[in-house]
Each structure stands twice: as structure tokens, then as C-alpha cells.
Amino acid sequence: MSILVNRDTRVICQGITGRVGEFHTRGCLEYGTRMVGGVTPGKGGEEIAGLPVFDTVAEAVDSTGANATMIFVPPPFAADAILEAVAAEIELVIAITEGIPVLDMARVLPVVKASRSRLVGPNCPGVITPGQCKIGIMPGYIHTPGHVGVMSRSGTLTYEAVWQLSSLGHGQSSCVGLGGDPLVGSSFIDILALFEADPDTHAILVIGEIGGSAEEEAADFVRHHVTKPVAAFIAGRTAPPGKRMGHAGAIISGGKGTATAKLEALRAAGIEVADSPADMGEAVVRAMARGGRR
């Protein structure tokens, strides 16, 4: 078992004819992902990496039976690409694109919410179930199959955590990159619920960062609804207020979104906190040693 994606997931790439889209489509194919096609308006009939290219998502779904898409469409057109995927009733929409205007996402989210589709991202590394399916830009080889569920708002920090876990002999059930933007399709809570319900996930690692209140909401959810051991790390303890730290979402504003408030909330919910980024893997081990939360 796993969450969101497995060896049966049939994936298309929107923006497959772009340099980045093609590069990562090949990367996913090499990993063993069942890539079944791609979409670029006006490029239908072409072939990329041995896969058929379609003009529309609807056509791609009809021909390939795709149930997941990864989006590499450039920022000005990415929101539209998400809407197209949702209209074609694709179950899982993973938006990798970085730099989508926040009001575009404000227009997209209500449509996603009213649909049967689940959106992960944007501005995220993607989703991987080690050994089965990789959708996104993460380096596949650092992951090992196992029982720790990982979710994060940042990319390379997730790789760091996965590396630590794999080095300690702890594989991952699935790893989900939520994205570094202020408005994203899936929250920590959405993914926590999936990991809690997945029998193959035995412990959960939450990697957050400054800005917003997603980590506080996650802590509250863990306290009431999660029985599995949970560990967490928050990036940006030393970040000054009012300065955007790379991610559009990583900014302390109006006294809100500080690391201190997030750490307090996590600890109060009985979550094992890693004080150092070097300690993320060990924190999971400690959380597992403490055992289930109830």
C-alpha cells in the first residue's frame, strides 16, 4: 500500500514538449512510472520519449486511460492547465510549475474543491511511492521502499530528510511535496488523513517552514485524528520578519507564521520535533520508539 500513487497509476505530462517537461518525463519513465502520454496544444500527433502527444487533456484521457497528470506548463498558462485537467476528470493533478500568480490559484481552488480531482502543488517536487511510481522532479534513487510517510513544503529539504531516513534504514511509504506557494491544492491535513488511513505507513514526518498557519492546523489535526507516531521539522527559525525566503509562502508577516509559534503547536500536540535539520531522520526514529500516540 501507499498513498496517491502506485505501480498502476497511469500518468500524462502537460507541457511534455517543453525542455523541462520532456527531461522529467524521461526521468519518470526511467524510474518505472507508467507514463502513458503528454499534452501540448498544437503539438498533437508528435511523439516524445516514445509517448504520444495530444492537443487536449480530454483526448489524452480518452486514448490512454490516464488517471494522473504532472504539469510543467509555464506560469502564465499553468492555472488554465490545472483547470483543463480537472475538467477532464483526472483524479490526481500534480502541478510542478513554480511562479503561478496567487490570484490565479485563488480562482482555481474553488473549481478543484467542487470536483472529483485532487490537486497537489503548485511549486512542488511532486509525489513518489518508492519502487513503484515517481511523478515529479525528485531524484528517485535516494528513496527506498518502506513505512515512513513524508510530506513537505520544500523540495531539497525533503531530499535531505529522505536521505537521512534511507541512511538510517527507514524506507518511505510515499513522499508528498505540497509546494512552497501561499495557496496550494493539498494541505498537511489532507495528506495526514491519507497517511493515517494507509496501513503501510507506520510513522509520519512533517516538514514545514515559516509563513502561514498550515503547521499549526496540522498539529491540531494530529492531536485529534492521528494515532501514528509523528515527527516534524520547521525551516526558517532564524528568518527575519517581512522578508520572503525564496518561496512565496515563506514569509513572516503581521507577527504570524513564526517558527516559534509552529514549534510550540507541534510540541503541544505530542509531535517529536527535530531542532536541527540534521536531526530529521533521528526524530522519526525517536517518534517510533515512543510508539503510537494513543
Binding site: 529539504l157 526558517g236 536541527s276
Partner: peptide, 15 residues
């Protein structure tokens, strides 16, 4: 490389 890792590196230096 990466915003999250960059923030964490600052934290690590401070720690």
C-alpha cells in the same frame, strides 16, 4: 540549492 534547505542551513549555522 532550494529555499527550504537554504533556510535550514541558516538555522543550522545559528544553532
Amino acid at each position: 540549492n532550494g529555499a527550504g534547505l537554504a533556510m535550514s542551513t541558516m538555522d543550522l549555522v545559528k544553532l
